[in-house]
């Protein structure tokens, strides 16, 4: 097993574990928002922002926590045959079928990136080019130059009207982490087939 692959798996595992452990505690942020919502409703006036905020926190919770849940093996599989296979056999099948999962995540990421570009006011069909230009403008001309490239910033269709790009950026980031984790699982399975363990 090349050292680079081992190193990759180690780094990704550690990073996603740290991010996942952070996401894990978002549960209490969620509880806090909802409890505040009940308290303010009962004793003061109901708040505009709690339900939507809770929804945003929930997105961060399951998207950023996703890779860690893969590490923990929480994602169910149908083990009609799988359950009876040896670890090596499972690794052989997984090495192939994980590409289906990766493909799905890839398409998801593409959609997330183009939707994020939209939330920054880009209506074209080449979101990657847009982000390239945006980053370039930021590097060369600072925030003002980047701001000029951005159009109408998408807001949530509610009376509170928060900007939606932060939640879309979280989705992009989380799906990327999922992809990195799945590639790590792929390497791990290759090692397992060779009789090594990482």
């Amino acid at each position: 097993m090349p050292e680079a692959m081992r190193c990759y798996v180690r780094i990704i595992d550690r990073m996603n574990r740290a991010i996942g452990r952070f996401a894990m505690y978002l549960l209490f942020a969620l509880i806090g928002v909802l409890i505040w919502s009940s308290v303010s409703k009962t004793f003061f006036t109901p708040t505009l922002w709690t339900l939507e905020t809770a929804q945003f926190v929930m997105v961060a919770y399951y998207v950023l926590g996703g890779p860690y849940s893969i590490q923990m093996g929480s994602n169910v599989r149908m083990d009609f045959f799988y359950g009876d296979w040896s670890p090596r056999r499972r690794a052989i099948v997984d090495v192939i079928t994980i590409w289906f999962l990766l493909f799905y995540l890839g398409v998801l990421l593409w959609g997330a990136i183009s939707s994020t570009a939209y939330s920054f006011g880009y209506f074209g069909t080449e979101p990657f080019k847009f982000f390239g230009e945006l980053i370039w403008a930021f590097v060369t001309g600072g925030p003002d130059a980047a701001g000029e490239l951005m159009g109408y910033l998408e807001r949530s269709p509610s009376a509170w009207r928060p900007y939606v790009w932060p939640v879309k950026v979280i989705l992009c980031f989380g799906v990327t982490l999922m992809i990195l984790q799945c590639v790590a699982e792929f390497f791990r399975d290759i090692a397992r087939i060779r009789g090594e363990d990482i």
Binding site: T45, P46, T47, L48, L51, E52, S156, P157, S158, A159, R161
Partner: peptide
């Protein structure tokens, strides 16, 4: 109207919130 949680249009919600309406978007 004060404190009523109403399903309404974003613009209408923005307008009505000055009367204490809590617009909800679902």
């Amino acid at each position: 109207l004060d404190g009523l949680k109403l399903y309404t249009f974003p613009t209408a919600g923005r307008f009505l919130s000055q009367f204490g309406v809590v617009p909800v978007n679902i």
